[in-house]
Nucleic acid binder design. Structure first.
Lengths: 208, 208
DNA sequence: CCGCTTTTTTACCATTTGGTAAAGTCACGA
DNA sequence: TCGTGACTTTACCAAATGGTAAAAAAGCGG
């Protein structure tokens, strides 16, 4: 799809594009799209502003490139949920992967959060085409597990969304958590384990 | 503290300050602090830019004013949690109030989220002085309930944080939810009810 | 070492943005 | 109705920002 125009990115091109994206991730995730400036990105990347515009056609292209890359990484943990595994184990493993991802890639998480907060102006299509199908697929899978009595019944959509909410919160609201809790919020893993174990254990208890 | 300088805000002052804050809430919550412009706020308020600067000393003062007002409203639902009530009922009522608040004041929720995402540059002191004490107080209360066996034991801090995460998510990530779920995400209330009922019911079930 | 392409720098620009000065205009009590 | 203080508008700015043109400097195959 882009062979005719761009044959092969030279070594130096690859290196500099990577440096720019790395710097841009820092800046965008910290200040949001409109709050970030090309000068900031340029300085963080150790390049001049016009030089950056030699590698990317503009601010927006940098941002969109980051968002595209992010999408794959972001969907991964959900995609890994195995239909043939033990339901509760699969769900809990997913929660752990997602939490770990928030820990390992807080900048990516904030970039994403920022974009969604502003109404996903540059991401709506990707949500439709990338996230939605996977979301629906996993909802169906979870519903099946529940119908088989292998998980306590709850709305699968809200379940997944709640997992996103709780896990990403640790990255996105770090500034708040830093004030309220010691450092890094230890114990999040075991809390979430307990939360979702009690929610989903098929040995149904008293219903409220 | 400000009697010597400002005696009494005239009727027109009150009206226009309110209009400006209302407009600014729209704009700030949609674009973030740096993404919002005085011109946008001015247009939304139906006033000229210099006129706005007649009522507020600058962009930052408007933002800070909004943040201050927000703080009170935001803490309210948590403050209402009654030490003398039934523990589980109090917690669930809190969850419902918080969710309702996200529904009723999505702009405020986004304003807050934006500020925290950027590292709370204009809010850190308020978190320390306003939120932290209340948070600690309620953590102590919840821990007491748990020690009395009236709630299943979990970390109170993570519990409260998870309530924030799940409820605010419905306002802050609306753009994402709109793609994934029908409209307005019906059933959030009952999902969260189930989630926290199963987590906190003192009739402890199997421990993971 | 040469010539050609790729990369980088220098010097600019137009627009946007937060903010100001100062000249009105309005409201209202004397 | 007239003056005085509260409010608004008009006309500006300086700085910041996204972006461009074109010259200079590196790379690099031959």
């Amino acid at each position: 799809m882009d062979q005719p125009t761009k044959k092969k990115p030279s070594r130096i091109q690859q290196k500099n594009r990577k440096r720019i994206l790395e710097a841009a991730l820092d800046v965008f995730s910290q200040h949001g799209y409109r709050g970030a400036t090309l000068d900031q990105i340029a300085e963080a990347a150790g390049l001049s502003k016009p030089n950056i515009l030699y590698y990317f056609s503009g601010k927006e292209e940098i941002h969109v490139t980051l968002l595209n890359r992010l999408m794959e990484t972001w969907l991964d943990p959900l995609a890994e949920m195995d239909p043939d595994g033990d339901p509760l184990e699969e769900l809990l493993a997913y929660v752990r992967r997602k939490l770990q991802m928030s820990r390992d890639f807080p900048r990516e998480s904030r970039l994403f959060a920022n974009e969604i907060l502003q109404g996903a102006p540059r991401m709506a299509p990707h949500l439709q085409s990338g996230l939605k199908p996977l979301f629906d697929e996993k909802c169906t899978l979870i519903r099946m597990w529940m119908d088989q009595g292998r998980l306590a019944p709850v709305d699968p959509g809200h379940l997944i969304v709640s997992i996103w909410a709780t896990t990403q919160h640790y990255a996105d609201f770090d500034a708040q958590l830093g004030v309220l809790m010691p450092p890094g919020a230890p114990g999040a893993e075991s809390f979430l384990d307990t939360l979702y174990t009690r929610l989903l254990s098929p040995l149904a208890q008293g219903t409220a």
